Simulated assay, not measured.
Amino acid sequence: MKLANFFRAALVIGTLFAGLTQSAQASIYTYTGDTTGGPTYNRPLEDLSDVSGIGTDVNYSTFTFTVDTSGEYSFLQTTDQYDGVLYIYENSFNPADPLTNALGGSDDLVAPWTSGFAGPLDAGISYVLVTTSFYNGDAGAFSVTISGPGLVTVSAVPEPSTYLMLALGLAAIGYTQRRKLQR
């Protein structure tokens, strides 16, 4: 009897370690942000069937990323006590046309301040997560956790002010070169 209990305990411990080994191969990536003062758009309904009248002029934040391994990924968003909504887009997100490239959305996963979903992602494809709120005027801090079989790579997307600085710098270099040639 004691030998049977020993083998049963060994089987349970072995299963636990096997589960730990499997989950250790998965990647988990968490990012945080705040939609307060962010740009606004008219968000789509959760099922992407239309653009919502309730979600008119809601603040949003975007996060662009790729994964290095194709497979099933899960997304969990928690917000700072406001009714958050999470969407995923493939390749690009256009706030003027929020249904184009949309793959899915989620609202109220566990409670009004959590949302999430799971789905297949392909390696090397650019994805955009859009964090927003259900109601106009709701905004605040959020956290999104992505988990799956591969690594999440964040795409560096320059802010518009960065492009302005680049353009001004190039203009200054061009002006300087022109002055040198006129001498």
Rank of each mutant, 00 (worst) to 15 (best):
E90I: 07
T32F: 03
Q25N: 11
R183G: 15
P160Q: 05
S74H: 05
V58T: 15
D50G: 08
S126D: 10
L103I: 12
G71R: 04
Q177R: 14
G174I: 03
Q81C: 07
T30E: 09
N42I: 06
Y175Q: 07
P158H: 05
A141W: 03
G19M: 09
L16D: 00
L170K: 07
V67K: 02
S161R: 06
T132N: 09
A141L: 08
A18S: 09
S92C: 05
G55Y: 00
L103M: 13
P158C: 08
Y73Q: 06
V130L: 15
F6L: 15
G37H: 08
V58A: 09
I146G: 04
A171E: 06
A156V: 08
V58S: 06
M1F: 14
D47G: 08
G140Q: 07
D107L: 09
A171W: 08
M165A: 15
S74G: 12
G140L: 01
I125Q: 11
T79W: 04
A171H: 03
G84W: 01
F134C: 04
L48C: 10
Y41E: 12
N101A: 11
L129M: 10
G150Y: 00
T153E: 15
L45K: 03
V130F: 03
G116L: 05
L181Y: 07
L109P: 04
G53P: 04
Y31C: 05
T100G: 01
R183Y: 12
A24Y: 08
D68R: 02
V130R: 02
D68F: 02
Y127M: 06
N101G: 11
G104P: 02
F134I: 02
T132D: 11
V12N: 02
T114A: 00
I125C: 05
S133I: 00
L170I: 13
T15R: 01
S147I: 04
A24W: 06
I173E: 01
T78C: 06
T15Q: 04
F65T: 02
V130T: 10
Y31V: 11
G19Q: 05
V152R: 02
A141C: 03
G19W: 03
R178G: 02
L76T: 15
P95Q: 08
T35G: 01
S92I: 10
A9Y: 09
G150E: 01
N59H: 15
T62Y: 07
L170S: 13
